[in-house]
Design a protein around this nucleic acid. Structure first.
Lengths: 194, 194
DNA sequence: CGGGTTCTGTACCGATCGATATGGTAGCGT
DNA sequence: ACGCTACCATATCGATCGGTACAGAACCCG
């Protein structure tokens, strides 16, 4: 049953693969880039992760559990405003990290060729998930009367989603964290507190 | 001196090439995709435009003169608020067009492999240009006393830039124009008029 | 109606893409 | 010690990548 043991840790090397996809995107990353960065050879990669597409999806999972954890954690904040602040501050912190810069969900597969349509759809679905979760959370905040009357929590959530994506693009262009935080400052300044 | 005349119009086919790059990005677009969409064969493409990279740059120029014209035109509005409204409304209109969807400057080459670094830098430089122009325009508005005291026009400009990029990403995900306009509604609601 | 020039169309180039066949190697159970 | 199993490493697969050589065709000029 047992055989020669694997000489590397799957989770550790997944982190290394994620960084390559993060920086160069799905289509901009070649198998040779991955094997070089991960320190393993091609058949080992295929045995451990399946293929390039499956590896990318596992990197998306790893990204969600790791660098993008704040998106999930922000929802646990007690108020809508605290959710927004946690989400935006956390986004700035992640998209300005050296691994990227930017956001893997945005950089990874925003526009692709026909052959990578499934990967693009997967990344888009995960962005949609985050948006839906944020909408649901702010709806609760609205029902608790946290916002000024007439405020649509769905619009507010989509507004925040728009900001996070925009911050990711600007970070990819090399904008420093300090500057992005000033954008967040302004956005939070106009928050519709009741 | 003269020879066999070209059987197509360079500018017309440039429009067709732009749509392919717009939808699939620089690396996601193959020469065969371009020649098929443009209705010309490979040597004709190279004779008319140089190579793939040069063609992409000409598409960026074409994009700036055409679909993204509103970015330049918005600056001519009389007030900062009108500039913002023109920019955001125009952005929504462009990024939800069927050619894309999204923004060519964002979709085209956000994250690329090493071989396409020059193209990525070109797209980033054009995004930076738009940002700088918007900063300069809002600085004039600030000097005219249009904003509430203490408002940094550079921060305001970067905030708008963040929104436009975020709108582009959301449009790429298939978000309809109506929904994006609601995000713009909210953003304009909180504009710091003096 | 040729000569010169430029474009078109086919067919092809080397390089690289993602993916794999094959044989050697390291460990576990008996 | 030996066989079974699973992983490692080299070498290679067909397909596709961006780019081009070459020959024929279409036009202007004389």
């Amino acid at each position: 049953m047992t055989g020669r043991p694997r000489t590397f840790d799957i989770e550790d090397r997944l982190e290394l693969a994620m960084r390559v996809f993060w920086r160069h995107g799905y289509e901009g990353t070649a198998l040779s880039d991955l094997t070089a960065a991960m320190g393993i050879n091609r058949p080992s990669l295929y045995a451990a992760y399946g293929n390039k597409e499956a590896l990318f999806r596992q990197c998306l999972d790893h990204y969600h559990r790791g660098p993008a954890r704040h998106v999930r954690e922000a929802l646990d904040e007690p108020t809508g405003r605290a959710v927004a602040e946690h989400l935006l501050r956390g986004t700035v912190a992640v998209v300005t990290r050296e691994e990227g810069p930017g956001c893997l969900l945005v950089n990874g597969a925003l526009a692709t060729g026909e052959g990578s349509a499934a990967v693009r759809a997967d990344a888009a679905a995960r962005r949609a998930e985050a948006r839906a979760a944020l909408r649901a959370r702010l709806r609760l905040a609205a029902e608790a009367g946290e916002f000024t009357p007439g405020t649509d929590p769905a619009v507010l959530a989509d507004y925040l989603t728009t900001l996070t994506h925009g911050l990711a693009v600007r970070a990819t262009d090399g904008t420093p964290a300090e500057e992005l935080h000033r954008t967040v400052d302004f956005a939070l300044l106009t928050w519709p507190d009741a």
